[in-house]
Design a binder for these strands. Structure first.
Lengths: 129, 129
DNA sequence: CTTGACCTTCCCCTGCACTGGAAGGTCCAA
DNA sequence: TTGGACCTTCCAGTGCAGGGGAAGGTCAAG
């Protein structure tokens, strides 16, 4: 199948597919006589895996690692477990940071709306920040 | 005061200060005979405002907007309130998204650790993703 | 035979907030 | 006078995941 068909079948773009190939996530496909990329149907499930992994928040670099282990003939189970654990820790940390920031901003915003009648001191930039 | 002093006084770098000037957050300072930037002491509180705004998660573009209103002689109160409200909505949305993602990843990770003894099917990339 | 849709490679651009380094000028102390 | 610390401008790069568009080749239909 040609690159445009594959893009449509997987909901991505030809640009992205060439980029994935360049980035080592997709193997270099065969070429037709005219030099067109000619993908085997199985590539669709590989793309689906890439999509699922992206949905889990893995970077292309991490996905490439998994695929390389798999392509090397090994089962990437342990590596995947580790990546997922790391991702979970990251998410917990990110969420905690955002919640703390949310508290700060909510306080600032509350001050900014309730104290409103007092006009800002022209000499300072902003009394709320 | 020279740029190096200001950088040290405000905990930033000379690079960042020139960048802020270029980006319209700092006015072009006077120059000494040798062409060195010569900042007035008041600039320190402007930098402090920039730092506080960054801590609240505002982008440099948003901070520049506030400063431009202020520099135009107006009180940026309403604009600040709006920016803070928007920021709060953004944070709520981001937190919700991350929490949903966290649920997904936690499930994947749980599956990956408990189902472990069953080896992966060599024909697929990974049974967990 | 030509039109239009598809394909190829190539290089640059995006947003964000800077950082690094080159090439050169200035100032102060030893 | 020389060394080192500071300053200047300008250009380029960082990380992430591609997107935009040029210049040119290919293929099927009308």
């Amino acid at each position: 199948m040609r690159i445009g068909e594959l893009a449509e079948a997987t909901g991505t773009t030809t640009k992205a597919l060439r980029f994935y190939e360049e980035a080592g996530l997709l193997p270099s496909p065969d070429r037709t006589g005219a030099g067109y990329r000619d993908y085997p149907p199985e590539i669709i499930s590989r793309l689906a895996f890439i999509r699922r992994s992206q949905s889990a928040g893995l970077t292309l670099a991490q996905i490439r690692e998994i695929l390389q282990i798999r392509d090397g003939g090994q089962a990437p189970c342990e590596h995947v477990q580790e990546l997922l654990s790391d991702r979970l820790s990251d998410l917990d940390r990110q969420i905690a940071e955002l919640q703390e920031l949310r508290g700060t901003v909510a306080q600032l915003q509350a001050d900014a709306t309730t104290v409103e009648p007092a006009r800002c001191d022209p000499a300072t930039v902003c009394r709320y920040l």
